[in-house]
Design a binder for these strands. Structure first.
Lengths: 188, 188
DNA sequence: GTCTATAGTTGGATAGAC
DNA sequence: GTCTATCCAACTATAGAC
């Protein structure tokens, strides 16, 4: 694994564990085993390091999102599969977790991957819902875009509840509650 | 306003603006106008300061939660009122925002107010839903506890989406999507 | 109770040798 | 490309005077 590679991976780990503010270039050096001079040779500083890490995480999340509801089954089944997908609930979302950091939100370049990721995710889910509605799987009253936002919000909010409770239970509960609500819109 | 009072309020502001890691005793001193020695006379250090601030915020959120769905109207109306309540969406939730900080989650004393707040909030909403179901407002298939978790998660997740987009729109959308889903369970 | 002084550590980065 | 040296500000707190 190349040097830049190791730096990016170490930064991704630290961003997830300690957040943006809690992640220091020093810690990245220790975690990656890369020296000071070497690190600053490859990256300008903390924001540059974070940008590379965030871009990679965003790319991976996007890829996973496009793979997942791309599977077979009815639209409702695909949404359920997305909601019940295995997640390390207590560690939280690599992308959503950064939305709390003022430095991230204030920097347009750092914030953009967050916005794009959630935009695409909502768009992807909305497309599945729309398709399902057109096939008569859902009642006509279901609003694909709004419902997609709800679905993504439940996942992100589930992380918050789970961490607050130090247990994945509230996450699961929120997800199952949503699935039950969606079922009422299903005409199968 | 007393000295301790000013310290707590300054800490609450900073916790919201900068998070736990980003909030330093120094900044609290500057914001509150209280000197170094004075601050350490009243509070042991950063965790003690944060604990006092978090407890107060938790108490206020709890009070608001008990006042809000205690209003008149059907259960569905009360839930809608809660979901549409005015919020400073881009600033995020004082309590939920802290769930990202490892230092908060790792400290049982600091985490407890978060857990309690969300437990009570879910309990309160579940009670409203249960009442509504018993009065025949909702279909029998509606699970009060799970649905309450979903409702709270949508709000918390809405904050995340809004901050990522630097716009309150995704929050509103997620909330309206949820309301539409709930309507399908309403027998009115 | 409040103030000033002090102190060790980390953060975030630059400079220049190799 | 990588290493070591160096830098200054901020963090978090303690000590002791008033």
């Amino acid at each position: 694994m190349g040097t830049a590679e190791r730096l990016i991976e170490a930064t991704r780990e630290l961003l997830r564990e300690r957040g943006y503010v809690g992640t220091s270039p020093r810690a990245v050096q220790r975690r990656s085993g890369v020296g000071q001079g070497s690190m600053y040779h490859h990256f300008d500083g903390k924001p540059a390091l974070a940008l590379a890490a965030v871009r990679r995480s965003a790319g991976q999340l996007r890829a996973a999102a496009e793979a997942d509801p791309g599977g077979e089954g009815s639209a409702a089944e695909r949404v359920r599969a997305y909601l019940r997908r295995e997640r390390s609930v207590l560690r939280g979302c690599r992308i959503g977790g950064l939305a709390r950091a003022p430095d991230v939100v204030a920097d347009p370049e750092l914030r953009r991957p967050l916005e794009e990721t959630f935009d695409r995710l909502r768009g992807r889910i909305a497309a599945v819902l729309r398709e399902g509605r057109e096939r008569g799987e859902f009642t006509a009253s279901l609003d694909p875009a709004a419902t997609a936002a709800t679905i993504v919000a439940v996942v992100q909010g589930g992380y918050v509840l789970a961490r607050s409770a130090a247990s994945p239970d509230p996450f699961r509960q929120a997800v199952e509650g949503l699935i039950a609500l969606l079922d009422a819109h299903t005409t199968a």
